[in-house]
Amino acid sequence: MIYLDAAGTTPVRREVLEAMWHYLTGDFGNASSHHELGERARSALEAARTDVARVLGCRPGEVTFTSGGTEADNLAVKGIALARRAADPQRSRVVVSAIEHPAVLESARSLARLHGFAVDVVPVDGAGRVAPEALAAVVGPQTAVVSVMYANNEVGTTQPIAELAAVAHAARVPFHTDAVQAAGALPLGVRDLGVDALSISGHKLGAPKGVGLLYASGRLSVEPLVDGGGQERGLRSGTENVAGAVALATALRLAEAERPTAAPRLAALRRTFVDRVTELVPDAVPTGDPEQRLPGSASFCFPRVSGESVLLELERRGVICSSGSACAAGSSDPSHVLLALGLDAETAQTAVRFTLPSTITGDELEAAALALSDSYAAVTGIARR
């Protein structure tokens, strides 16, 4: 099997399993309990928070562990918007880009449906980029929060986050970025990015599913979404997932240490793969920005061909990839991301996404390109060139 769906999820790293195992079996205590076993769990939790803070360049107290990227996005968008409006009733608008992950888009829609907020959607260009001037056109004195993702999960396009954050700050609006796909591939220093809040999910980095985090600046007011015993400094009540926090911190630390060499390697492999695919399948149309993109993300549309049919043929040949966001699995609707890029609905349903794990080799990608060519031929009846 050649696995090319790292944007969907990644296997748990051995180092991560070894780091978290002790907190599932030995020091399994409740981190909120005031006895020795609980104190050891608390120490591990705070050590994990400190490790994360070192990678992000923030204070440990600005890191909140969550159940994943979706919860972190919800807490950021809803929590910041509700707190801002409570402090200033005119702040009743939320700004998101047209290609956000459903966790952000549905959070904004929930604020509109349940709390009367208005939602402003910033368009993108044909490559999926948000122009700072386009953001400036919609941000104003009524805006409570801006959320623009660092890197898109479907087409791989990355955003000029520091410039976009500066636009928001000029209007005195806090800026959140969904960095779920960017973690491990792009720099995460929150000061350099200029962001007030940032979301990460563990299972994209080699940690288990079910753990994530939100960085929120200490200057920021955030309304909690989960009430209870006041854990995580009151932002996220519930018994702390110590083993998950240790796992996420370990995976993030390892990924960040590897990034300076891993990212250029993946980018070179991706470029070769894209060139090979377009050579073998001339009808293939690469999507997303050709340069401003995640190093390990390649995406294509195959006009007049069912993307799902190509995927099935690829899987028969041992290549695992996807048609887009795993969070939209089972939906027959065309991708909102591809529609926002200007593709028509029929073409948008022909998408195939290849996202490279860090262990991928050039030989495997050559085999995947040949398998794609054979799959395309099987679906269309057009023989390989």
Rank of each mutant, 00 (worst) to 15 (best):
M1A: 13
M1L: 09
L4Y: 01
A6F: 04
A6L: 09
A7T: 10
R13L: 15
A19R: 03
G29E: 03
N30K: 11
A31N: 03
S32A: 13
S33F: 08
E36H: 09
G38W: 07
E39F: 13
R42Y: 14
E46K: 05
A47Q: 13
A48G: 06
R49G: 05
R49H: 06
T50D: 14
V52F: 11
A53T: 04
V55S: 05
G57L: 07
E62S: 07
F65M: 06
F65R: 05
G68M: 03
T70C: 05
T70Q: 14
E71Q: 12
D73E: 11
N74S: 14
G79F: 03
G79E: 00
G79A: 02
A81R: 08
L82P: 02
R84A: 15
R84K: 14
R85F: 01
R85Q: 08
S92I: 12
V95Y: 00
V95R: 00
I99K: 08
H101I: 08
P102S: 05
P102M: 03
S107G: 08
A108K: 05
V124L: 03
D125W: 07
D125G: 12
A127P: 00
V130P: 04
E133D: 15
V138D: 14
V138R: 08
P141E: 13
P141L: 03
V146W: 11
S147C: 13
N152F: 02
V155H: 15
A162M: 03
L164R: 01
A168G: 15
H169T: 11
A170M: 02
R172K: 12
A179Y: 12
A179P: 09
A183C: 09
G184Y: 00
G184W: 00
L186V: 07
L186R: 13
P187V: 02
D192N: 10
G194V: 04
G194E: 06
S199R: 01
K204V: 04
L205Q: 04
G206L: 01
K209A: 15
G212F: 10
L213F: 06
R219E: 15
L220W: 06
V222A: 07
V222T: 10
G229P: 03
S237W: 10
G238P: 04
T239C: 14
N241L: 06
V242A: 03
L248C: 05
A249L: 01
A249C: 06
E258R: 14
A262T: 15
A263D: 12
R265W: 10
R271E: 14
D283C: 11
P286F: 13
E291R: 13
P295D: 04
S297M: 14
S299V: 03
F300I: 09
C301N: 11
R304W: 11
V305C: 08
S306W: 09
S306Y: 08
G307D: 12
E308M: 13
V310S: 02
E315C: 04
G324K: 10
S325P: 01
A328C: 12
A329S: 15
G330F: 02
P334D: 01
L338F: 07
L338G: 06
L343M: 12
T347L: 06
P357E: 00
T359Y: 10
I360R: 00
T361C: 01
G362A: 13
A368M: 07
L372S: 04
S373H: 02
D374C: 09
A377I: 08
G381Y: 10
G381L: 12
I382W: 06
I382N: 07
R384V: 15
R385E: 04
